[in-house]
């Protein structure tokens, strides 16, 4: 027998999928619809749910079986598209990456829109200021080649690794809308835009680092960051956002990147 036998398959149920009874949880959802009322309110929904399901599954149960007017954005449902950032039990998370069992289903689960962006309906916010800040940092490769190379530009594995962390950003706004500076002043670029500037500043192929640093040296730029680490905690992709911001600050001082 050349192949190993995975005997534990029969012996014990697999770790994530033992047959578990459904439990009853309360979703306490922040509702707002200016077509109906100018006031936002809390609404409770009782759900029968498998604790290994996602918060997004719970929201779908509400929308599909209880109240079709509940409104939220979602698409891929596994943490890649960045549509469903929301404030769950007071913390910014993706609803599709948060399992019920991981957020204490004993108590009501509170679900609110992310903060600092205008709420348009229920959990839907105006993303335009967020994307504007992103566009303002020139989030694209800039080179000064007069003649494009025939083949690919070369880049060492180490140089590629240098900015790997910040390439993971999915523009979900969980970081920016967790930042107390951003809550108080929507003019601040916010962590996500700085992360995307970092992705190019530290890319060895890019030649516009100085320009981007000047943009971020602005009064609404990196110096507004107060290093509260909310952004790093909020990032569903595990990006070390605060570290990236610190690296941009350091690059501004030393002009080395």
């Amino acid at each position: 027998m050349a192949t190993p036998v995975l005997d534990k398959a029969d012996a014990t149920p697999e770790p994530g999928f033992a047959d578990s009874p459904y439990i009853t949880v309360t979703f306490r959802v922040r509702r707002f619809n200016p077509e109906v009322s100018a006031e936002a309110t809390w609404q409770d929904f009782q759900l029968e749910i498998d604790p290994k399901e996602r918060v997004l599954d719970g929201l779908h149960k509400i929308k599909w079986d209880l109240d079709g007017t509940l409104t939220f954005r979602r698409s891929c449902a596994h943490g890649i598209c960045g549509s469903d950032a929301m404030r769950i039990n007071g913390k910014n998370r993706l609803a599709c990456k948060t399992l019920i069992k991981d957020i204490n289903p004993e108590k009501p689960i509170t679900i609110e829109p992310i903060k600092g962006l205008t709420v348009l309906k229920d959990l839907v916010v105006d993303m335009e200021p967020f994307f504007q800040a992103y566009r303002d940092v020139m989030p694209f490769l800039i080179t000064k080649d007069t003649n494009e190379p025939t083949r690919e530009r070369l880049q060492s594995a180490e140089d590629r690794e240098r900015f790997d962390d910040t390439t993971k950003c999915i523009l979900c706004a969980a970081c920016t809308s967790s930042c107390p500076v951003f809550w108080n002043d929507g003019q601040y670029f916010g962590p996500a835009a700085i992360v995307n500037a970092h992705r190019f500043i530290f890319d060895s192929r890019d030649e516009a680092g100085e320009q981007r640093l000047e943009i971020l040296n602005d009064r609404d730029g990196v110096w507004r960051c107060r290093t509260t680490f909310n952004c790093t905690d909020a990032c569903p992709r595990g990006i070390e956002v605060t570290k990236a911001i610190a690296e941009v600050k350091r690059a501004l001082i030393t002009r080395r990147f």
Binding site: F140, L141, E148, P149, R151, E152, R153, L154, Q155, S156, A157, R160, F163, D164, T167, F200, D203, R205, D206
Partner: peptide, 20 residues
């Protein structure tokens, strides 16, 4: 198509020689 994406900035994984 791959080379175009690289020139647009796509961060491909690299070989020890620095190629894609």
């Amino acid at each position: 198509s791959v080379l175009d994406l690289e020139k647009m900035g796509l961060p491909f994984n690299r070989t020890p020689d620095g190629t894609i």
